[in-house]
């Protein structure tokens, strides 16, 4: 299926889809911002400062999710020799990196009024910084190396090294004493965030995911144009 995929067919989707994704993004983001900045209640302890969460948490989730995805794509791409998977991974990475930076910056802005510091070398924050460095290495590798075979190998190694950090980020707040509080949203047990705050958070997550999808489609479209210009019908 993937070995014999036709760039032309996929190209017809990736060249048209971004417009509709953009429309949807504008709608969902507008609803999300109104919900989170105006309609949602203030927190009993942090009052309006809590609104930073509606940007911070979705950004962090997407940074982790996208890194997991590019690792999965790189590993399966390596095992089954699917070049296309590497191009999908390459197109996904920039938005993941941007969200990682957003999570770090908003975390810092949130930390000052609540904790009393811009930065703390605790396990959660440091491991998140390490993830940003892995993203940076991944993106730099694509710029530095020209030979496809070479860059596929190097980016695979970077993702395999980086993926070990992902569970560390997730569980750092449970394994060690950290300044960062434990997770509020749990799939298996009851969440410790009130539903009136959870709904805007989920809408904002959907909006950020749509943004990632939009950037991905545009980047991937560029990759396909490059292939077409080289006169290759198949990858």
């Amino acid at each position: 299926m993937f070995k014999h995929f036709e760039p032309n067919k996929i190209f017809s989707i990736t060249s048209k889809a971004p417009r509709y994704v953009l429309y949807l993004l504008v709608i969902v983001l507008t609803i999300g911002l109104i919900e989170s900045l105006l309609l949602s209640p203030e927190d009993y302890l942090q009052s309006h400062t809590v609104r930073i969460m509606y940007v911070h948490v979705p950004a962090a989730w997407l940074a982790l999710g996208i890194f997991s995805s590019i690792t999965f794509l790189s590993i399966t791409g390596y095992i089954f020799k699917l070049k296309n998977f590497f191009l999908i991974a390459k197109s996904l990475a920039p938005s993941g990196f941007i969200f990682n930076i957003i999570a770090l910056v908003t975390g810092s802005i949130w930390g000052k009024p609540t904790w009393g510091t811009w930065w703390a070398w605790d396990a959660r924050i440091t491991s998140m910084l390490i993830l940003a460095l892995f993203y940076l290495m991944f993106l730099m590798a694509w710029r530095i190396y020209d030979k496809k075979e070479q860059v596929f190998k190097i980016t695979s190694i970077i993702t395999v090294l980086g993926i070990i950090n992902v569970p560390i980020i997730k569980y750092s707040v449970d394994w060690w004493n950290t300044l960062h509080q434990p997770a509020s949203i749990n799939i298996l047990s009851k969440s410790t965030i009130h539903s009136s705050m959870l709904v805007p958070l989920l809408i904002m997550t959907a909006a950020f995911a749509l943004f990632s999808l939009l950037i991905f489609l545009m980047k991937y479209n560029t990759e396909l144009i490059k292939i077409k210009n080289k006169g290759l019908d198949r990858l």
Binding site: P41, D43, Y44, Q181, P182, T192, I193, H194, M197
Partner: peptide, 18 residues
Amino acid sequence: TKILAKHDENYMPPEVKA
């Protein structure tokens, strides 16, 4: 030499807390 506040993972509106 420095005091930092550590808050927990509970978020709720003031009315719910009351």
